[in-house]
Amino acid sequence: MGLVTAMLDKAPEESVAARVRSAVETVFEAVAATRADTTALLARVAAEGRRPATVDLAALRPGLHLRLARHALVSGVGFVAAPGLLTDVPAWLEWWQTGAEGDVRPLLLDLDPEHSAYADYTHWDWFALPRDTGERAVAGPYVDYLCSDEYSLTLSAPVEMAGRFAGVAAADVYLRHFEAAVMPMLHQLPGPARLVNARGRVAASSDPRHLVGSLDKGPDFAGALATGRTARADGVRLIPCAGVPLVLVVTE
């Protein structure tokens, strides 16, 4: 009885926002597990009185493969080293992806600045946000032309070694998979709705007037996320998906 009352009391928008948050949290679980494995690995290497090399990171692979197999939303997962962390290469992504045939394969990038204009990855949001804030982050939606060539969300968290930033643990979610996961939730609402990131970029939408990837220029989404409370603006209601940087927008 108490439970039923609670559910009835809750506005359907809030229940949808909570379900979106749970879906995103399952991906953050994959990030957190990768972060924990990497932190432990780097601590072991430090305890041996040496600095890590690419060969050490191979120990992360069983866990990464497991996460790709287990998390339906995750299409890429790994650890991206801060430049200078490893002794044998200037920069490195220990990154694994699910291929088109469901196979698991490593991402091999040309990270030599003499050959590649894409060698420096430190300005991408998925790297820079956790580095600069020390917090986990959601980057995108954006076109990931470095790793997957897909329209994606990348969830990431900082990894530290001896109290210093050592890189990020991260997971990729292709937007088409994210849409498949959240659209049934949006369709439960009586009217058109959309999920928007802190900068106003639409990540999923059941409203043909607001397409995925377009920019919602009016309301203050970052402000709504900061307060964590439902806000009203220009004929829309903004419901933050507390804990993840997405706002559910419904027309009043």
Binding site: S116, A117, Y142, V143, Y145, D149, E150, Y151, G213, S214
Partner: peptide, 25 residues
Amino acid sequence: SRLYGRFHVELAAAAQSARLTREQV
């Protein structure tokens, strides 16, 4: 030339189009 190419790829990514980006690459 590498930077010039990167500019056009980044422009396609700013358009939020994975297809245009792949074609440009």
